[in-house]
Design a protein around this nucleic acid. Structure first.
Lengths: 355, 355
DNA sequence: GTTAGCACTCCCATATATTGAGTGCTAACA
DNA sequence: TGTTAGCACTCAATATATGGGAGTGCTAAC
């Protein structure tokens, strides 16, 4: 990064990148001179572009074509040249309206966020669902279904409701289930999944010694199955926007990329691999180290509540992506999402709790 | 259908279709003579093919190409020529294994069914989720979240659990919610959403006169929101199998088709438009009356419990589809799915109910 | 340092063979 | 009368020229 480019080189690099982002065609000196008034002739621009190529910011697909940015060019653009693009009034208004109606449910908030991200950028949105680790139990119910089965329902303080069918001994009655529910509620509500301690579990076992077999299953589900269920789940929005990108008109490429995006765990890694950075992170081309995503860039950020990171969200598009726009949108939506979740949690934590 | 083809024509038509299904290339007389031992020369086959073309069963993409089947050709094949292809032991075993583990939950059963359908056929599976109209309430819970909100949880007798956040007056306490829940359970459990009668509702209002405002919301959700939620929802499996079909190597076509498949309501119509037929229905090309799906065929069937239709499932592929295989798979999976659901319901209805 | 001019490169679109799979027709054969 | 060998014909698909045209690098003049 130590490089400093003189002013004219910067303006030319910026012009090339901007033009390439909109046209997806290699950019020639003539175009720059015509469209971007730099007050110099194409010949001069050619000289400068040759320099920029030597420095590794631009490249030529072939000898007699215009220039396209290298990954390094994009990187420099993102770090030094680009100016953020504020959202328009209409866009902010759209966001406001979409959020207003669905503000109660975590799932819906995630869904809307993904849709807006993809809609506003025309790329593909990737939103990690909130990690459950930090949310605490609000209510636990065991409901009998038939002689050998019951449904365990857990309501979390972030409004997420999860349920699992579990098998129980035939001898257990509806009253037994109610008794177990009562104790579980008394002991566990307010605690996060992660913070269920052994002492607590011992207490429960003592109090419900009779139901050992059933408890084994219930606690297992509560501690491991439910917790891991939502983690690593990913919402994809605007997947088919990919089809509109000229770099993916080739079906083979499409197949590779869609194949990758199908693998949730891969996406999960992609979204997780960013422990240090704060704010918006941009990964360009090869900086994403997955085979088959070399032509893509990812703009992502982490969201959270009360300083706690609970997930991340981002936009995936071709390296030739409108970074200025996308970064602004991701930044804005991250704030929006964090705020919305904060609200859901606050409503639940600060106010009087009733049951 | 009044047509009768002589035996040799039948065999030739069958050969052309089979070959075209596997190769996706127009089939010439020579190929037929070589690969399918009919004991006649290419010249004879040419004559026959010319006849079949005149009758509308075959066509030529251009003068000097081989023949491909027309929609009418496929139709005749499906109705008269094709012989069903039994599933292999491995396939049946796979199905058995996949079903075994996830047999408890309706959602999971649907999911597995879709996956298997697409996996076994290499096409795209379309599975309508079960209509809720026929399932009855098993348990209803209102759980307070904060001062103004509560979660309504409804467990249905088919194991589906649904929930909604609702707003309640700030004056309502946890005890109030419990009281409401108790009455709702007493009055409604065992009833289907569709059969909640006005007399029943009146009874509830009388018993819970104090909670009028809250009840309005709750009953509204129970009767309309929850019921309609699951209906018309569609699970798509193996969507990206489309990318492997040679007829969809063109990105424009892909975009059109995927665009259609994104619209749930359209799919829903597609799956619903089959009131009379029993067993497996095959719609070929233009028989699907949606713009942009002319090159597709659909093999579908309805599934149900105790003679009641509660949904449908199918496989969508190019008109050049392996009908013999697909029809067998759809038939088999329909039985499997109905059986699995039957089991879930039976478990819940016949056995002693506990709460 | 900038720019006009010019030769050069190489993609792309168009036109022009060439090939080959497959046909329809005819005439001979069983 | 049905079947088949033979042959001329058709036409997509594949290669093979051909002519721009967009863009470059270099040189020399300003």
């Amino acid at each position: 990064m130590g490089f400093e480019l003189d002013n004219r080189k910067k303006r030319i690099l910026q012009a090339v990148i901007k033009d390439y982002i909109t046209t997806a065609e290699p950019v020639g000196s003539r175009t720059i001179a015509r469209k971007y008034g730099l007050g110099v002739s194409p010949a001069t621009i050619r000289n400068e572009m040759a320099d920029l190529e030597e420095m590794g910011f631009l490249e030529q697909p072939h000898t007699s074509a215009g220039r396209i940015p290298t990954e390094r060019g994009y990187r420099y653009y993102v770090d030094c040249l680009m100016q953020k693009e504020e959202l328009s009034f209409n866009e902010e208004d759209l966001i406001q309206r979409e959020y207003r109606s669905k503000i109660d449910d975590v799932g819906q908030v995630i869904h809307i966020t993904g849709q807006l991200l993809s809609q506003l950028t025309s790329y593909t949105a990737v939103v990690q669902k909130p990690k459950m680790g930090f949310s605490s139990f609000k209510n636990i119910q065991l409901i009998g279904m038939d002689k050998e089965r019951a449904i365990l329902i857990a309501v979390m303080d972030n409004g997420i409701v999860q349920h699992r069918m579990i098998e129980v001994p035939g001898s257990i009655t509806g009253n037994d289930l109610a008794a177990i529910s009562a104790v579980l509620n008394a002991k566990l509500s307010g605690f996060t999944m992660e913070s269920i301690k052994n002492t607590l579990i011992k207490e429960i076992y003592i109090e419900l010694a009779r139901y050992r077999r059933t408890l084994d299953m219930v606690l297992d589900v509560l501690r491991f199955s439910l917790a891991s269920d939502n983690d690593d789940k990913i919402y994809l929005g605007g997947l088919f926007n990919i089809l509109n990108q000229p770099e993916f008109q080739n079906v083979e490429k499409l197949k590779t990329l869609l194949g990758l995006l199908e693998q949730e765990n891969l996406l999960s890694n992609l979204m997780a691999a960013d422990p240090s950075a704060s704010g918006v992170t941009v990964r360009i081309g090869g900086e994403i180290s997955y085979q088959g995503m070399q032509d893509c860039s990812m703009v992502m950020a982490i969201y959270g509540v009360k300083g706690q990171t609970i997930g991340s969200l981002g936009v995936l598009g071709p390296t030739r992506m409108d970074y200025a726009k996308v970064i602004s949108v991701v930044e804005y939506m991250t704030r929006k999402l964090s705020f919305a979740l904060e609200n859901i949690f606050k409503g639940l934590v600060d106010k009087e709790v009733r049951f």
